[in-house]
Design a protein around this nucleic acid. Sequence first.
DNA 1: CGGTCGCGTGTGACCGTGCACATGCCGAGA
DNA 2: TCTCGGCATGTGCACGGTCACACGCGACCG
Lengths: 340, 340
Amino acid sequence: MSEPQAPRGRAPSIRDVARLAGVSHQTVSRVLNHHPSIRPETKQRVLDVMAELQYKPNRAARALVTSRSRTIGVLSASSTQYGPASSIAAIEAAARVAGYWVSTANIDSSDAASISDGLAHLAAQGIEGLVVIAPQVRVFETIAQLSIDVPYVTMQSTGHEVGRTLSVDQIAGARLATRHLIELGHRNIYHLAGPQDWIEAEARMRGFLEEMSAQDVPTTAPILGDWTANFGYHAGRELLTVRDFTAIFASNDQMALGLMHAVRDAGLDIPGDVSIIGFDDVPEAAHFWPPLTTVRQDFAELGRRCVALLLGDRDPSAPEYVATITPELVIRGSTGAPAF
Amino acid sequence: MSEPQAPRGRAPSIRDVARLAGVSHQTVSRVLNHHPSIRPETKQRVLDVMAELQYKPNRAARALVTSRSRTIGVLSASSTQYGPASSIAAIEAAARVAGYWVSTANIDSSDAASISDGLAHLAAQGIEGLVVIAPQVRVFETIAQLSIDVPYVTMQSTGHEVGRTLSVDQIAGARLATRHLIELGHRNIYHLAGPQDWIEAEARMRGFLEEMSAQDVPTTAPILGDWTANFGYHAGRELLTVRDFTAIFASNDQMALGLMHAVRDAGLDIPGDVSIIGFDDVPEAAHFWPPLTTVRQDFAELGRRCVALLLGDRDPSAPEYVATITPELVIRGSTGAPAF
DNA sequence: CGGTCGCGTGTGACCGTGCACATGCCGAGA
DNA sequence: TCTCGGCATGTGCACGGTCACACGCGACCG
């Protein structure tokens, strides 16, 4: 008796609400969907009953009939890293505000099958939009193959993207970093790049090469790394056996950290003997030793704008869309003029 | 003509499959659900048609009728940090293998409303299990309030948890770290703790205090931090104005990094003047300067076991379950015997 | 030799919601 | 006064699965 006409053991449906409010189930549905043609008092009565019954719409039923899931998929590689993780968190928050849900699939960079697995996983959920943070070229081929037909946004500019792209302008960022080193007087600069199948890595490398040639500084071939501090450390040890450089531009902060470790191990001074610059500006970079000069990317903003792009006015006349967020050079203690 | 009887503009349903295979829709359903009583040749025929039609089960329809979503919710605070991010990735992978989906909700530690928002968000999806990585005491109160009735696992041991708990034994880890410092000969040890409403922070603090009193070393009150390297830095500067200690145990690696920065700024040597030990063993810790002694937690294993616990045999006779993963001391260069 | 059981399969209802269409009412314009 | 249109609301069905139940058939058993 505590609950009037409470259907036991089952969550209340719109019909339960309708019965108690003395209207048809359709009227309840209209209230839910903010239909304009409802008398205010009818609407209020329905809303009151909903509150009383603690009614919650059944997402599955709604998805079934509308064939809309209100879910955004996120395909991400290495979501344990700072950048992707920040973006995902921002996407999730932005989507929630818009009444959307987020489902993520992590893929293993080294495993081609996991890409299609992840995409299939997301497709099975009927996602309405896809954010690709896994910046590997192969992903786009797989999307095409699986004929997944949802609007998608990628967080990196491939230069040849089919979908819409929103990205920090990696090339500009890399040029910023490179120019900084050149302006300090460095002429022998190495670039420790990321894995070659990462679009970001490629873009940063391109930015580096562009700026070097624009400033007429001869370049050596970049070294391809794997983003980890460990790799930076070992690459650094390797490089220091030759020591024909005064500065290194690492493609991310972790590798820069490893590099600095190796340089210190060799008994050299940073930036006295070697200048090092990173990319990302992870929150810890300011506390590295020495504090790392790097290029800041606003990952959170990136995530928010991804969702806005995906859910916002889908202007059909502008299916191809590329927006960039400008990165920012953060000068700290790891770079300085070369010793002569 | 390219597709026989292909229903245009609509994804194939079990009835479409049934028609082409010459069976009833129920038989198709049985194939999908691995019902034992199906003749192998019938099953094969159905499977063939499914493949031909690229049939994919409609998740919403299934969820509607079974009222099971096959979705696990993850409530997480600060998912941008290494630990939570690793665990989430592991949860996602483990859930996918088990045929489950993961939906995450990020909450803002400082905002009480966001906790109930996040939980409501997850509840609306009909989650069947909940993993709480947001290790704040308030979360559990909110779960009770919202009368969310799903099994849940929390990644931290509260000592007074209502649900099942799976955690790295924070107390043991903290004791390990503390004992290490004491065994090196330190007697004046500070503890830089995490935010007090974090269960992990509290557990580590308790471990610290327990070990100190077990070894009869007098303690000073721990300092409450916020996990960030920035805080570690500023706390370090503050502490160094007094300098009545020879070692600091920081509750995570980021704060330890900030501390080391402050100590270096003061012109002191690590570990010569001050020993510093962290907690977590983030991948970068080995490349800090000096390489950080810390306590390793296996976050990925934690995530996997969470899912196993949630989806595994729900033994009703053992609703209360606490499992721990033992952490491991990793000795590197930031700790040493105190100078006298 | 009849009854029961189990296997393989089919029939129809049902889950909760939204949509297309129908309905009654009221006011405006011909 | 009649018609028409728009508002507020109701009716019935569809969405794509699963579940309960029914059914025919052969094997086994008392």
